[in-house]
Simulated scan of single mutants.
Amino acid sequence: MRRNTILLATMAIATIGTTTQSCLAIATSSVGLTVIKQILLGGINKGLNIFSNKDSFLANQLIDAALPQQLKDINSTLQKVGLNSLVQKEKDYIARAAAFTVDTSRPILNNAVNSLTAEDATRIIQGGSGAATKILRERTSEQLMAAIAPKVDAKLNEFGLVQTLNSALAGTNILGSIFGGQNSNNLATNAVSRFAAQQMVNGLFNIIENHEQQNSTTILNSLGGMK
């Protein structure tokens, strides 16, 4: 009886090992890698479609959650002094600027996805939920920031946001408290463009990751039900 139990346990372990190896083999095959790429590209398209529409951008909670703390502090201060309309205008301008980053962001992200390898697929499968987006973020976030920040800055200046914030914050020490004791209006208004670009990059990855998680069942099914 004991010998039978040990034999069954050994067979079970061997089966699990074989199943895991089979799942990884499928994952790193052209089929498994294609599924992962399609899901990531779907998330990218979803995010950039949202960026293309100002109202969709403003209404998206994943983008709102990506707002940098410094910009939250500026907005909170403006609201406290009765300038809520300026905060709304700032958000509107940032949403409008986001549309001008779509054509720049798309090839960077698509190229990174299409460059994924079998080794990446193994890391994604072993990494669990959100691992594919994590790899994509690691490989593109700095490039995205460098590419879109100048476009965001140009658009926000074109819309007059920088000048408006300068006027609203002139003669205050608000910026010093937010930026570590440096009392410079120009420092903050120039940084607003950088903060806006950070929100766009992080918000986009939030959308891609959410899309990946929503489609995790598709990944598992393509790998034969691997958990």
Results as ranks from 00 to 15, higher is better:
56 S>Q: 12
92 D>M: 01
48 L>G: 07
127 G>M: 09
47 G>W: 10
66 A>T: 03
98 A>G: 06
33 L>M: 03
111 N>A: 15
101 T>P: 01
93 Y>L: 12
131 A>G: 04
116 L>N: 04
101 T>G: 02
113 V>Q: 07
29 S>H: 00
129 S>I: 13
110 N>M: 13
94 I>S: 09
84 N>C: 08
71 L>F: 01
48 L>Q: 14
53 N>A: 11
124 I>D: 05
87 V>H: 06
104 T>I: 15
112 A>W: 00
97 A>L: 15
127 G>L: 08
134 K>R: 12
57 F>M: 14
116 L>M: 14
113 V>W: 03
116 L>C: 05
48 L>Y: 11
92 D>R: 04
136 L>R: 04
94 I>C: 09
132 A>R: 10
78 L>N: 05
101 T>M: 09
100 F>S: 14
40 L>V: 06
64 D>A: 13
107 P>H: 06
89 K>N: 12
137 R>D: 07
125 I>K: 06
103 D>V: 11
116 L>T: 09
28 T>E: 10
114 N>I: 06
85 S>L: 12
94 I>A: 11
35 V>Q: 03
119 E>R: 03
118 A>Y: 02
132 A>W: 12
117 T>H: 04
112 A>M: 02
121 A>F: 01
68 P>D: 15
56 S>G: 00
78 L>F: 03
46 K>Y: 07
93 Y>D: 13
74 I>Y: 04
62 L>V: 08
99 A>F: 03
74 I>D: 09
106 R>I: 02
136 L>A: 01
90 E>S: 09
48 L>M: 08
81 V>C: 03
59 A>L: 08
28 T>F: 01
68 P>Y: 12
44 I>R: 07
137 R>I: 06
40 L>H: 08
65 A>L: 14
49 N>Y: 06
38 Q>P: 01
115 S>G: 07
112 A>S: 11
116 L>G: 05
117 T>V: 04
71 L>T: 03
43 G>W: 10
31 V>W: 00
84 N>E: 15
65 A>V: 07
135 I>V: 04
75 N>C: 10
137 R>Y: 13
118 A>M: 09
48 L>I: 09
